[in-house]
Design a protein around this nucleic acid. Sequence first.
DNA 1: AATGTCTACATGTGTAGACAAGCAGACACC
DNA 2: GGTGTCTGCTTGTCTACACATGTAGACATT
Lengths: 247, 247
Amino acid sequence: MPAINKQSRIPYYFQLADTLRQQIKDAAARGRAMSVPSENELADKHQISRATVRHALDILEREGLIYKARGKGTFIAKARAKYELTWLVPTTEDILRRGWKPGTQTISTQRIAPVPSIATALELGNGDEVFEIHRLRTADGEPICLQWSYLPAQLCPDLLEQNLTASLTQLLEERYGLRLWTARSILRARLVQPAEAKLLQIPRNSPVIYIEQNTFTPEGHAVEFLKSVWRSDRYDFVVNLSRSLTA
Amino acid sequence: MPAINKQSRIPYYFQLADTLRQQIKDAAARGRAMSVPSENELADKHQISRATVRHALDILEREGLIYKARGKGTFIAKARAKYELTWLVPTTEDILRRGWKPGTQTISTQRIAPVPSIATALELGNGDEVFEIHRLRTADGEPICLQWSYLPAQLCPDLLEQNLTASLTQLLEERYGLRLWTARSILRARLVQPAEAKLLQIPRNSPVIYIEQNTFTPEGHAVEFLKSVWRSDRYDFVVNLSRSLTA
DNA sequence: AATGTCTACATGTGTAGACAAGCAGACACC
DNA sequence: GGTGTCTGCTTGTCTACACATGTAGACATT
């Protein structure tokens, strides 16, 4: 069974990466040890060039699934949380991955002139307005976090007429062509405020995680400014880190 | 002035990436707009093949410095905190990058039998012992965080006889050949404990960030388990996120 | 027993060239 | 004016090959 379909318009390197990814996943599920064939073996086996094989392996290495050792070969990294990477993950999807049922309750929406700090964060000029969307996110019915999203009104007209209880990320991409590509988050601990405590259904003076996040398109334009307050008794933040590849 | 030194044993693609990185940084500092020449131009100019140019540009793209548009060209991403990436950064280095003077105060060290959770995290068997290193880290003389490091005694004999006020990461790499390659952190907010508050010089009941971090070698072996408690009034956590490349 | 050398094989780096596919501007045509 | 089409640029994918460099084992030498 040739894993590479040469008729497909999907690039060979992508097909190969996908095939190997699946094999690694399956092997891990069965508890079997599986090694990665050498680059030449893979090239011979699938009748593609070694450069193409290396392209596929590059991708898997970046994902942390494999590692290479010069002179020795390519090996499967020990099974970790490899499939939960440090990528930009929409809240809805993140809750789903943790095996919970996501829910959303819209608390308020309005079109306003932004305060200076938010105008700066969104690179807006005088007179530009923003939508503020204040929502409560739940997992299995239990409150998880409060979010305040700020989006330039110009970029997404009619946003407030849309269904805001579904994934905002998906809505922005599909209706407005806004691809959320990179983000920069600042994170700190603080005490919950009384009004927040009530909505989150936690005691007063509970510690919470407070996050401010700027999100950008591939071209580097600011799309969203997001403030959020997270319960810390129910929700841990997991970060996977790696050494710089260029160091 | 040819940017590529063909006599050097440093790979061309690495030299080119470094040159471009510097040019982008300089241009940003001067507030100038600078575009990236086409791949063929770069290949001609430096007398190297297009494949090598692409290798260099790949690296810069992964770092978020540039982005490519098929049919149009390669462009510089808007200036962000591009140089503070989401990599695994040792505490000492992180404090330096923020422009502070790092300091370390060793509170206690001991060789102990680990509690089960730590033994599991470090993949230890019965009878294996660990070093516990409890330190207070400071920036510009002010307490920043408390750390408890746990390391398998087998991997780094004589560790407690070394100078522990310098960078532990550097010590592990240079003396014991242990390369800290990937890490998985779990992060939550909690209230500071009285003893911790005293050491950190913050009020009782202050919220703090609590982190547990597992660190691994490239082969996926556990090297270090680190618990830490961070002041949240002085230290923000910054995370840069990006979309998966394969999505 | 320790050391050096050779060999086979692995990944790392680099070349030259080919064709595909997306974009934008010029241009002719209706 | 509006619409296609052509052309020349860009990046994307892929091949076939060459040589460098690191690893490990077999083997001979000391």
